[in-house]
Design a binder for these strands. Structure first.
Lengths: 163, 163
DNA sequence: CACCAATGATTGGTGCACAAACCATTGGTA
DNA sequence: TACCAATGGTTTGTGCACCAATCATTGGTG
């Protein structure tokens, strides 16, 4: 038996859908909770797809950035991916030891680290090409809705960027 | 100077808005990227608000769950928050040493851990009451749009739950 | 009653994520 | 030219997040 009355009866909610959300501190009322859970859920879809390629999702994002444009400095990647340099530093070392990227100081400015793709790294793009469609298929949501979510999220990012 | 041509000219994009997204591997085309960045951005809004209360966002979510209903077992929290028990276990110990919750085995079933609020934990709810409004204000997005994002995210969660 | 598969939680390992401290290089400027 | 603030990365420390392995308790079943 369970420890508590019943997880699905906050007080007198009519049904599964959260209509009134009278309590601002109710878990179902938290947009950020939905945001975090959605992110984790979708990452969970990527995981088994990326794992055979030897990539985590953050690493995949770095590769996407480099496939679009290389070389890039840590600072470039940091601003493109909105990630802390302190996060990228070890991540890039792992990509290097996986043989996907090279890390060398820029000759013109020794402060900059020039991150570039290896042949193997370039090659991997062919395999990655099928990922987006695979994820969309697994998610099983109509493309129009996905697009809507995307633009909505961009608004959230823009709004949060102001604050 | 920079290492690369220019971060803002993938090839011939008209302007800031991403219209065609011809390349499925383009960073701007990745919904999951937007999802992850949005989540991180909004968490960044919560951080300075929660920090003076001594809470991280995951800890805040656990408190929200307990304020709605207590006691809860680790399993209950795990299913409510969609979090691994292995993640919750040390998190709950930190909440315990912060004096906000108690952790004791259930008397009826020694396998279950009964997580309950302390007086201090109950008390904290008063302070937390102002958080949602504060976050919404900082985000500066109209409430209707926020609601829309919320329902859209619930759809994503539901879709990802199938897969 | 004695075993045993299932359940619930903890532990250990890897990899983000962020903040703060630190370090090297650079490009002014006194 | 000799200093010095700014810039770009790395390191360290804390806290998720997930997985796999482990362990104790429980509730059947032979």
């Amino acid at each position: 038996m369970d420890l508590m009355p019943a997880p699905d009866s906050p007080s007198a909610a009519p049904h599964g859908t959260t209509l009134p959300a009278e309590d601002p501190l109710a878990l179902e009322a938290q947009v950020c909770f939905a945001l975090v859970v959605a992110a984790r859920s979708v990452l969970g879809i990527y995981r088994p797809i990326l794992e055979p390629m030897g990539l985590t999702h953050p690493q995949y994002l770095v590769m996407l950035a480099l496939w679009q444009q290389a070389p890039l400095s840590v600072k470039d990647l940091s601003s493109l991916l909105q990630l802390d340099p302190g996060t990228l530093s070890p991540l890039l070392k792992r990509l290097e030891s996986a043989g996907l990227v090279t890390r060398e100081r820029s000759t013109s400015d020794e402060r900059l680290l020039s991150v570039n793709l290896t042949a193997k790294g370039v090659e991997l793009r062919n395999e990655a090409a099928k990922i987006p469609a695979e994820v969309v298929a697994k998610l099983g949501m109509p493309l129009t809705e996905i697009k809507q979510v995307h633009t909505a999220l961009l608004q959230v990012i823009a709004a949060a960027g102001q604050a």
